[in-house]
Every structure is written in structure tokens, then in C-alpha cells.
Design a protein around this nucleic acid. Sequence first.
DNA 1: AGATCATTCAAGTGATATCTTGAATAATAG
DNA 2: CTATTATTCAAGATATCACTTGAATGATCT
Lengths: 221, 221
Amino acid sequence: MSISPKAALLEEYALVARALSAPARLSILEQLAQGERGVETIAEKTGLTLANCSQHLQQLRRAALVTSRREGKSVIYRLTDAKTLALMDLLRIVAERNLAQVERILRGLSGGEEAPEPVSRADLAARLAENSVIVLDVRPADEYAAGHIPGALNATLAELEQMLVMLPPDAEIVAYCRGPYCVYAHQAVAALRKRGLNARRLDGGLPEWREDGRPTLSAPT
Amino acid sequence: MSISPKAALLEEYALVARALSAPARLSILEQLAQGERGVETIAEKTGLTLANCSQHLQQLRRAALVTSRREGKSVIYRLTDAKTLALMDLLRIVAERNLAQVERILRGLSGGEEAPEPVSRADLAARLAENSVIVLDVRPADEYAAGHIPGALNATLAELEQMLVMLPPDAEIVAYCRGPYCVYAHQAVAALRKRGLNARRLDGGLPEWREDGRPTLSAPT
DNA sequence: AGATCATTCAAGTGATATCTTGAATAATAG
DNA sequence: CTATTATTCAAGATATCACTTGAATGATCT
């Protein structure tokens, strides 16, 4: 009851960090970075059971990283603001710059090959304007439908094989997915490069693209 | 053994967040933000036992938030880079903006009064140049000795009482301490304003001042 | 080499966290 | 009002974490 104000403050800051300290919750946040979602959708996408997912969401809410609103029977969650995204991003940057383990995993994703530098979002926007690049959205079809970079083709990793024949062999390809936490684009680029195609990853994913204020397109349902 | 690369990545990111999720470790990081320190010093300043402190430091090192080097018999720890500081700062900003509990604690520190806006570091630098402000360093004497803003007076909260009489009653006073995690400056400003003095807090503390590339002075021992 | 000092390791305990299961609550539809 | 659907709550099992204590390591000094 009578802890010092200083300790109380640190406890609150730690609460926010603790909310980010479980892989399951980071996975949820990555989903929410795509856009607001209902509990069941999040549970499906992350592979968590419903009750478990709900409990994680409440921890995130307690830490003020997400907010929720009721909409009919459903409760819709979303990231509180861009600061949440910034926090996730910084977490990733620190991990990638300094943890050898992360580098090993990322290298494994590219099949041991050295992965090329990602394309910046400004670059991609410029290249899109002059139509000199093929953009590949490597996310599940429903997420593509909910919003994607205008002009992007959609293909999951499994579908990539069939897609290969449609791609001009000398085309420059830029792949993106959910964002920096997502490995789809890494894997797609590795698969394409293995086939000799000139593929690179976009820096960031759709949430970052949107955060930049760049246009997205949602497919007609 | 055969978890997906995606899960492995999230686990690594979560490791970094977990390192920030204990108040004791945030306290250690705040100390290290002042400058590099040996284990025993950190343990004393944070009130942790030596063994416990050592274990926390190792967790921070595993998360790559701090690094260490040997110097004779001692092991000196320090923040890996400015990213660690940025992460702590963002954590605090999210907590302060969105957690009602934090606001309540901070309000309690200012004795219920509305605290004035902090002074920006650029402002303080300008005011220092024209000598129109009194700067108060509200940290323990040893930390003041290790480096402080040139021209700053040093007084702990307990010593403030005696200092009061020396301060011209119409002077503008700017107080700072270890940084945003530290409550000394909050408390000092509250105490001074209660006496009718024109006191404000510096935005950030010495680590942020230094991070800006501004000069500091260490007292002759 | 032996003594000393700073730090780390190892084992044990109590508290917390995650996940599961099954029941309880809220809002809507019939 | 009752049934239905979406979400949350509550209780329990297992694992992990924070802290303590006492011993072990590593680098210096005599």
C-alpha cells in the first residue's frame, strides 16, 4: 500500500513492457496492425483458443496498447495509436541489430543466401508511378481483400509456384506482407531468387505503408 | 525443437520486452543511463542485493540492452546504444499518455497542483547562454560530480530547504535529475513552487541532455 | 603460490504467468 | 421471453520468474 511513487511509476512502465513480453501477444498486435479485428478473427489468425486470446487482449488493453469498442454482439479491438506500432518496431530493431540469434533465424529464412537490401517505401511508390515493377502481396487472400497496395498481385507462398510462369523472367519484383514481424515476404523473396528472379523485399509491410499516408485499395467483395 | 521460424522470431522480440518488464531492471537501466557503472555501484544505487543485481544485469545483457567489459577486477556495464534509451522513453510515453494510473501518480508528486510544462533542452541552453536562469541538479552528490550541466547547482531534496534562502525570490529555476524515469525533479519543482518560487522541470534529464550532444562538466575530485 | 576482492553460479522458495476447461455475461434474433 | 452468438470470467495445472543464500570462479596483489 505504501510503496514509493517512484516504484509505482516503474511498475506501470514495466506493465507496458510485460504486455509485449509474450510471443502470443506480439502475434496479436501484428494482426491488429493490419486493421481492427473482432476477437474471433484474431483467435483464428493467431491460432490461439478463443478464451486464451480474449485474456491476452485484455492484458494488452490494461497496458493501453490496444483499445476496444462494442459493435453489436462483437467486440472490436484495435491498436490505441501509432505509438504502439512504434514500440513494436523499436523492439524489433533492437533485437535484429544486437541479437545474434535473430540474425541466424533471418538467414535461415533466406535459405542461407545473403538477402538483398529491402526497397524503401518511397522508392516503391516512385517505381509504381512509372510502372517499372511488379508488386507481390504475400498475405492470405482475406487480408489482401481488406486492403493492399494498388496494383499488387496476391499470392500465398503455396501459390507462388504457379505464379512463377506468369512473371516475366527479367521483371523486378517487390514482395511485402504484414510488416516487419511477418516472415512471408522473406520466404517469398528467397523462393523467387532461388528461381533466378530479381526479387526484393519491401521495407515494412502494409501497416507501415498505410502509416506513411500512402494509398491502399480494398478488393470489391 | 522444430518450432517455426516465425515463432522463433517472436520469441526473440519478446525476450527484449521481457527484459524491460521488471521494475528492478528499469531502475538499473536508469542508473546506466547516467553513465557506465560497476556491478556494486548499481546494486547500491538501486537497493538490490549484489547477486540479484548481477542476475538482472545478465538478463539485460541477454536481451542486448546492455553490454559489459572487464576492467581489472570489476565488470563495467553500460547501455548498448541510444536505442536502449529510446525504447525506455517510448515505454514511458505510452504509459504516460494512456495509463490513468500514471497520471495519478505524477499528480501526487506535484502535491495535487497542476505542474507547469517542462522547459525544453534547447530553451534551457539558450537561457543558460544569457545567464537568465538558475539550474538545479537534484541528484546525489556523486552523480553530480560525475557530470552535470555546466553552471548547475547541486542539491538533494533534503538539502533544498537550506538552499531556498540563497535563491533570489524572483529567479527562474529549472530543475533536472536522472531523466524521465526519475521523480526528484518533479518533487523539487513541487517543493519550490509551494514556496512561491518560479520553478520548472527540464524536459528529460542528464542522459537526454548528453544525448543531444550538449556539454557537461565533471566536478574536480 | 596463496590471499583478497568483485562478480557470477547454483539451488531452493514463494509468487506470477500461460494455457486449458467449463461456466457466466451481454447483446441480438425469433 | 427464450434461444443464440460473441465474449469474458473463474478455477486449476504447469512452467517460469524474482529473490535469497551460500559456494565457485576470475583477476589482481603480496
